[in-house]
Simulated assay, not measured.
Amino acid sequence: MKRILVLVLPALLGGCVVGTVAKTAVDVVTLPVKVVSAGVDAATTSQAEADQKRGREIRKEEERRGRELRLAEERCRKGKPLPEDDCSRVQQR
């Protein structure tokens, strides 16, 4: 009985070892491809990402202009405009 077990056990384990070695070999071969792919992805910007970034920039610029316009209107209403303020656009209340 022990002889049969000794003869059969290496055959059963051999498949596991071969499968593990094959999987490890595939992982080792594909690792450089995955690393380069991740590096390229991190270094490049997709069109969607570029559009989102441009949209954020436009919104921030519009917010800045709005703040400047409100401050200019307030200065004009108080009668203390700066030389660059266009008080003709401000409605008197």
Rank of each mutant, 00 (worst) to 15 (best):
E57V: 10
E73K: 15
C16Y: 09
S37W: 06
A43I: 07
T45S: 14
G15N: 06
V17C: 08
G15S: 05
L82F: 08
L71A: 11
V35W: 02
R75W: 06
C87T: 01
A50G: 10
L9Q: 10
L13V: 03
R64F: 11
A72N: 06
V35N: 02
T30H: 00
T20G: 03
R64T: 11
E57Q: 11
V36R: 15
L31D: 02
R56T: 12
A38E: 05
V90N: 02
K2F: 09
G66H: 06
T24I: 02
P81L: 12
E63Y: 07
Q92L: 07
E61L: 15
V21S: 00
R56W: 09
P32Y: 00
P10E: 05
K80E: 15
T45N: 15
K34R: 14
R89S: 04
K23G: 03
R65M: 13
R67M: 10
D27T: 03
C16W: 12
T30Y: 01
G19H: 08
G79T: 13
S88V: 00
K23H: 00
A48G: 01
P10H: 05
K53V: 01
K2C: 01
V26I: 00
P32G: 00
K78I: 13
V35D: 01
K60A: 11
K34E: 07
L69V: 08
A48W: 12
P81S: 09
A25L: 05
E61M: 14
D51G: 12
E63F: 14
R65I: 08
K60L: 11
T30E: 04
V17A: 12
S37D: 02
D85A: 11
Q92F: 06
R75G: 09
R54L: 03
Q47K: 15
G19M: 05
V40A: 00
R93M: 03
G15T: 07
R93L: 10
P32L: 01
T45F: 09
L82E: 13
V33K: 08
K2N: 14
V28Q: 06
E68P: 13
Q92E: 09
T20Q: 05
L5Q: 08
K34A: 09
K78Y: 11
V90I: 04
R93W: 05
R56E: 13
A42W: 08
V40M: 05
G14P: 07
I4Y: 10
A43W: 10
P10Y: 07
A50P: 15
R54T: 09
T20H: 08
L7Q: 06
R54Q: 14
E62T: 07
L31K: 10
Q52M: 13
E62N: 13
E63C: 06
E61F: 14
A42Q: 14
G55E: 10
E84V: 09
D41C: 04
G55M: 12
R54W: 04
C87H: 00
V36C: 04
T30G: 00
G39H: 01
V33N: 04
R67C: 10
T20M: 05
V29G: 01
T30I: 00
T44C: 03
V21D: 01
G19R: 00
E74R: 15
R64K: 14
V18Q: 08
L7F: 02
I58Q: 13
